[in-house]
Amino acid sequence: MNTLTIIVPCFNEADVLVDFISTVNLQTQELPLIKKYLLINDGSTDDTLDIMKNLSETFDNIFYLSFSRNFGKEAAILAGLEASDGDFVTIMDADLQDPPFLLTEMYKDMLEGQYDIVGCRRISRKGEPFIRSFLSRSFYWVINHLSHTEIPSGVRDFRLMTRQVVNEILRLTEVNRFSKGLLAWVGFKTKYLTYENIERKAGKTSWHFWQLISYSIDGIVNFSDAPLNFATLMGFISFIISMLLAAFYTFKTLIFGDPVQGFPTLITLLLLIGGIQLFALGIIGKYIGKIFLETKHRPIYIIKEKHLD
């Protein structure tokens, strides 16, 4: 029988981890795959690691990796993919916002439609703060207009993948990882199932407002050079405006003898040009920073302890 590796990135999920395992087991009883859980402790500060150890001692299909510190969800996903050995692989959040009952339908659709990836996307964000939902929708709109890689709105990391897809993802060794984009970039025959938003079973999200903003910016920078083109365009527009203003004030002085008031004009032009320059430098600096991180060749994560097959 084929095997399924369930990768579960965990950061302070002590309140829900046991419930997650029991819920997945209960709702996937009809799934004709041998399930293996791979729990990734991403530097949790609560009892998450102790619970992982207890679960791995109790069940022979539960294994874990524990990082030396918090490296982020992207690092946890990568570690899980590298340690996985199942014929099929899925990524699930421990907070049960990824409905386990969909796994059976995902596997069925994968076989019937010969899909390589069957993912999930939320068609509503009921229960989320308005500003967070608005920014999320805005992010997908922006990135799909700037990038050649289409990322459907509301798509989750929760998806069922074949071993071939996982192997191709692991060939992408970049440090600055944006898994939703990488999974879309590799292509393959893909289908998305839709579902209504499900609130967390317990605890609270570890993603704060500015973390989400930073993650969104990283996603845009990683999959589009449009911001660089925009900076170039802004510089060109600034040059045209300055030439038009110079011609206008020269014409005005020569024809009407009306000298230009120097101070307000000078301040306005300095603020305009200076602001555009700083904005363009910020965009360029972001890309240079990404290059700097890539050239360091630091490990994406460090494993402190583990229990695998």
Rank of each mutant, 00 (worst) to 15 (best):
K296Q: 14
F230W: 07
W185G: 04
I302N: 06
T3P: 02
T295N: 08
F139R: 03
Q27N: 00
Y195L: 12
L228V: 00
L26S: 10
I220P: 01
E199C: 06
T45R: 12
Y301F: 14
L39G: 05
R137Q: 06
S138C: 11
K36C: 08
G275T: 06
Y195C: 03
M110C: 10
F11V: 10
L228S: 04
D109N: 15
Y64E: 07
S44H: 09
L81K: 01
R163K: 15
W210L: 13
K306W: 04
K191A: 08
L183Y: 12
R171Q: 15
T45A: 13
A83N: 08
S56A: 15
D19L: 06
D95Y: 02
L228T: 01
A231W: 05
E13H: 03
S238R: 08
L38I: 14
L81R: 03
I240T: 11
H145M: 08
D116I: 11
I7S: 09
T250N: 07
P9G: 06
Y140F: 15
A184T: 09
C10Y: 03
W207R: 09
S66I: 00
E150Q: 10
S206D: 09
L254V: 14
W207N: 08
F209A: 08
S242A: 15
G235C: 02
Q261W: 12
F239S: 05
I302R: 02
G72W: 06
T205Q: 04
I302T: 12
S206N: 09
S22R: 11
S22C: 03
S179W: 14
S124V: 04
K191H: 13
T250M: 07
W185Q: 15
I241H: 04
P100G: 11
S216W: 13
D15M: 10
